[in-house]
Structures are given as C-alpha cells and as structure tokens.
Write a protein that binds this DNA or RNA. Structure first.
Lengths: 116, 116
DNA sequence: GTCAAAGCTTGACGGCCATCGTACTTCCGG
DNA sequence: CCGGAAGTACGATGGCCGTCAAGCTTTGAC
C-alpha cells in the first residue's frame, strides 16, 4: 500500500466516556504521585502540554505508561501535533461525573507544595 | 505486678493529628475498596460502629489491618467500649485539612452503589 | 475462677504495579 | 532522502500490599 498520512484517530487509542469509568479506576489513577503531578501541572496550565514538557522524575517509557493510565481513566485527552502528543485535562467532563473530586485533590496537592 | 485496669489510651495506639498526615497517606488509605466501604458506612451512620458490625468481605485479621491504616491516616477515631472497639469518622477534622475530599468520595461511592 | 467473645500480632504467601532498558515507529527538518 | 526527535511497545525485575491462618491478650458474663 502507498504511504498514508495517519490521522489523530489512528495514532491515539480511543478515549473512554467519563461516565463509563468507575471511581475505583479514577482513584487507582490518582493515587500515584507521578500521575497526580501530571494532573496538577495540567490544572495549573493555561494551554495543552506536550508529553515531553512535563517535569517528571521517571524515564520516558514510564511516563508513557502513566499517560496511558490517565487517558484510560478518562482524566486526560490526548491528540497529536506533529510528533508531539498534547495533553489536556478533561476537567468539565470529570467534574460532571465526580463532582468536587478534582478540585479537592488539586487544591490539596497545591497546599502540600506550599507547606513543603 | 498486680492487675491494672487498662485505660483506653493504653489499649489504642495514638491517633495522629490530621494536619500531620500527607495527602498521599490519605489517598493510599482511600484507594482500597474495603477501606472506602468502611468510611462510607461510617459516613452514613448516625452513631459509632463496632469493628465487628461492619459489613466487610474479608477475614477478621484483614479487617484489623484496614482499621489500622485508616486510623494512621487520620480518617477514623477508635475507642474501646468493653471488649468492643468503636469507630468514628473524623469528618470535621479531615474536612478542615482536605476540604471537599471526603464529600466527593463518599458521594461518588453512593452514586456508584445506586447505579450498580 | 472459668470461658467465650472481640480483636490484635505475627509470619507467610501471592499478585499486582511502577520502573527501566531496548528496540521499534512515525513524523518533521534540512 | 536521511537523520534525529518524540513516543510507544515489550519483556524483565523488584518491591510493596492485601489476604489469611494460627496463636495470644484482654475483657465481660455467669
């Protein structure tokens, strides 16, 4: 077959509906400090963040693993821009299904960062 | 040594100040479904609950383990009444340090119980 | 004083998960 | 067209944690 330009949909695995995600899945995702750091950095940002631009204390392959967990938990949305994978926090969608949860966690993380 | 009547303080290990507990510790405690069930049952109750009166799918020794994790995370308070260990949710104290967290989790758990 | 009830402690075991290195894929720049 | 950059995929590994059974301690009841 000739060379075909891959669409975003081809290169990024499907995102679940947040309503189809269990609380257990969300907590399993957010209990890890690295993943919580990703969420917090996204919550503090004004624009999407490239995978490689996060400040993370793990290897690249481990980071990929964490992004996948977050995506499958319905917490982030990913799309390609060139070779870069961009990440957005699915804030309103998550808030609709788990009211107050993200706010409580992000605020608690911020407070911990201040007192530390 | 003559027989001495043990006080509550003797028999129950010390409770931490909630302010001295980290968010990580709280999340580690609440990510386990058995422990979250304990917290939810306490949140729904009007009075303290005896350890043995919880509806839990694990053995007694495992339950003891879970109660310890919750106590050390500052989430529950324990005191003796005879041979029974009573449990209370430290709601106001936890709310003061982690605003909205308990509400979000308990409500999400309740919603999951309904739709299930 | 004796016995059962309630719960804790300890040790062992099994499974899951975060982590990494390596190899591979895809795309952009020159 | 080719090299590098950005990520992913795939084992392999190590540690942590939930689980249980067995034995012990304390208490209250009779």
């Amino acid at each position: 077959m000739g060379s075909m330009r891959a669409t975003d949909t081809d290169r990024i695995p499907p995102h679940p509906e947040v309503a189809a995600v269990t609380l257990q899945q969300v907590l399993d995702a957010l209990v890890d400090p690295v993943r919580r750091s990703i969420v917090t950095q996204l919550a503090d940002a004004t624009a999407d963040i490239r995978c490689g631009d996060f400040d993370l204390p793990v290897s690249k392959s481990t980071a990929t693993h964490h992004f996948r967990i977050l995506r499958e938990a319905g917490l982030i949305r990913q799309h390609y821009a060139g070779t870069s994978r961009m990440n957005t926090l699915r804030r309103s969608e998550v808030d609709a299904v788990f009211p107050g949860l993200l706010d409580a966690l992000v605020n608690a993380d911020r407070a911990a960062a201040v007192s530390r």
